[in-house]
């Protein structure tokens, strides 16, 4: 049993290294889709690096609407809105969400178009414990914005 666990862990690490390497290459390239950018990463910082590349995300523009305390981590309602006119020239291209203490930090990525009219999404997420939700918005002019907010979770939602 112990032997088996060790083995899986080693493979996991090696895979991670390989993926991280690939991620760096992808970050240098252009025209990556949110899905490629979201390849497994060990932490939110790594994951975020893959999306923003060399750009420094500015704060603001993003409104995270989260409950202060989530009693049930299995389904936490969240809403995220990015302030943008959503015109052809100036709109939100993508929005990425992470939860920094989940077993896997990726939560979701959304792609918008000017036809969306408003860059706002609501969904329900699983959170394993009290942690930060990080949102990064990618604008049509190539700029990035970031927001971070904490949610207190009473009962974790990643079932053992």
């Amino acid at each position: 049993m112990i032997h088996k666990t060790l083995e899986t862990r080693q493979v996991g690490r090696r895979e991670l290294m390989a993926m991280f390497g690939a991620g760096v290459v992808a970050a240098m390239g252009v025209g990556m889709t949110p899905r490629d950018a979201m390849a497994d990463a060990k932490s939110v910082t790594d994951a975020m690096m893959k999306v923003v590349g060399d750009n420094k995300p500015a704060t603001g523009k993003i409104k995270l609407d989260l409950p202060q305390i989530a009693e049930n981590g299995n389904t936490v309602p969240i809403a995220v809105e990015v302030d943008s006119p959503m015109s052809d020239a100036d709109h939100v291209k993508a929005l990425h969400l992470w939860a920094d203490k989940n077993p896997r930090p990726e939560v979701a990525s959304f792609r918008f178009s000017p036809a969306s009219g408003k860059a706002k999404v609501s969904t329900r997420v699983r959170l394993s414990k009290t942690q930060n939700i990080v949102a990064v918005a990618e604008m049509s002019d190539g700029k990035f914005y970031m927001a971070k907010s904490e949610i207190k979770v009473t009962i974790g939602g990643c079932g053992g």
């Binding site: 979701a108 969904t123 699983r126 959170l127």
Partner: peptide, 12 residues
């Protein structure tokens, strides 16, 4: 396409 989303296991 007007909207697309990629979900991870963190979606309920």
């Amino acid at each position: 396409e007007v909207f697309a989303s990629d979900w991870h296991p963190a979606i309920s």
